[in-house]
């Protein structure tokens, strides 16, 4: 079986995989990183988003071997030194989740958005999140959380 190597959350990892092994299977089943969820398994819901070389990718629609040599960040890799990432903190503070199933994908998607557009309008946040389904919240608090995180990140950068 072929070997795949990548950096996941700052750590070099390697493992034998099949051609058909999905990135999400490698992350969850080999590395035990179960924060990345499989929702629809048909590339629609966004629960499985991870960052691959800095951009959000559906890990259920990406082969592990396509990520050979890539830098992957999952939800587990966002917090540092026990401090939640500002997007995670904003989801907590603004109650941007109920059951939490979609949350890892929402947070990763928001991190990707804010890396491109540090000051999005509410409409831009809603439009960006169209590939992330939440069946609990009605999205309002998620959008609030992303806008609050954007403001905090801008402040951090200015400081």
């Amino acid at each position: 079986m072929p070997q795949v190597r990548m950096v996941v959350n700052g750590r070099e990892v390697a493992g034998e995989v099949e051609g058909r092994t999905l990135l999400v299977e490698f992350l969850r089943e080999r590395l035990g990183l179960t924060g990345t969820h499989v929702g629809c398994d048909t590339s629609q819901c966004g629960c499985c988003l991870v960052l691959v070389d800095g951009v959000s990718v559906k890990s259920c629609t990406t082969l592990a071997l396509q990520c050979e040599g890539a830098n992957v960040t999952t939800i587990e890799g966002l917090a540092s030194d026990g401090e939640l990432h500002p997007v995670q903190r904003a989801f907590h503070e603004h109650h941007g989740l109920q059951c939490g199933f979609c949350t890892p994908g929402m947070v990763i998607s928001a991190v990707d958005l804010l890396s491109r557009n540090p000051d999005p309008t509410e409409a831009e946040v809603r439009s960006w999140l169209e590939g992330n389904f939440c069946r609990c919240t009605g999205y309002h608090n998620i959008v609030k959380a992303v806008l609050a995180a954007a403001a905090e990140l801008r402040q951090q950068k200015a400081a």
Binding site: S43, G46, L49, V55, S56, V57, K58, T61, T62, S109, D112, L113, W128, E130, G131, N132
Partner: peptide
């Protein structure tokens, strides 16, 4: 096309 993550790949 699709959504942002689809457009990323």
């Amino acid at each position: 096309i699709g959504d942002p993550a689809v457009r990323n790949r």
